[in-house]
């Protein structure tokens, strides 16, 4: 699968200038970078939520799933929220068990805590198999225990569905734990990409080295 080049400009300022890349099925791509580097805009454009400067589809995949940074819980039960993305009740229950929200299945989802909402949203996305799944900071609202639980579920999902997963994360530790490939964004550009061993432990670009040092990796 290919991502073609695109750019995004807000008020005459180009916030993202992406030159394109190839995606491989069954791999997790961690998107890292400082705040304002264009990570979320990149995810939103690929998901089709935000339009790039030039109209078009930049991801040549048949199906794309997207979990936004701010998870929205509809005014209905947790289980009903999950079933919005598929009718397989058994799968929904299995996912709720795996991510430990089964006890909340009848609770109104808009009354869940931030961490619980994030887990519900993750289970909701995983109801379907996509060619490409895009997660924007999926564990930002979670504690360490549920973060590790979610990471386990994410890796299992990628293995089971064979999708290519693009995961925006601010946690370098998380990228190190579950990513296969790392994309480093700097000032709206994909500055460095490659295997996690290469980008996180032997970066080529000075900016990448500086960023990793700053975050203590």
């Amino acid at each position: 699968m290919n991502i073609s080049s695109f750019s995004k400009t807000y008020d005459k300022t180009t916030v993202l200038n992406f030159s394109g890349m190839e995606l491989q099925s069954g791999k997790i791509y961690a998107v890292i970078g400082a705040i304002g580097s264009g990570k979320s805009t990149f995810a939103k454009i690929l998901a089709g939520v935000v339009k790039a400067d030039r109209k078009g589809n930049y991801l040549d995949a048949n199906s794309v799933g997207y979990m936004p940074q701010k998870n929205f819980a509809f005014r209905m039960s947790t289980k009903a929220n999950i079933l919005l993305n598929g009718r397989d009740e058994q799968r929904a229950e299995k996912l709720m068990d795996a991510i430990q929200i089964r006890h909340l299945e009848s609770k109104r989802a808009d009354r869940l805590s931030g961490g619980e909402t994030a887990r519900m949203a993750l289970a909701r996305l995983m109801m379907k198999h996509y060619d490409v799944a895009i997660l924007d900071e999926p564990t930002a609202a979670m504690d360490m225990e549920t973060t590790l639980l979610s990471e386990k579920l994410i890796t299992e999902y990628v293995r089971e569905s064979g999708c290519a997963m693009i995961m925006v994360t601010h946690s370098l530790q998380q990228a190190r734990r579950i990513a296969d490939e790392v994309l480093y964004f700097h000032k709206g550009k994909l500055l460095e990409s490659g295997s996690k061993e290469q980008v996180l432990f032997a970066p080529v670009m000075a900016e990448t080295k500086q960023f990793l040092e700053f975050y203590g990796l």
């Binding site: 998901a47 089709g48 939520v49 799933g65 997207y66 929205f72 919005l84 949203a121 996305l125």
Partner: peptide
């Protein structure tokens, strides 16, 4: 915006999004 973004993320159609 949040409803639209979430519905789009799941690949739901326009009618279902409007219903939500």
């Amino acid at each position: 915006p949040a409803v639209r973004e979430t519905a789009k993320g799941m690949g739901l159609g326009g009618f279902k999004t409007f219903w939500l």
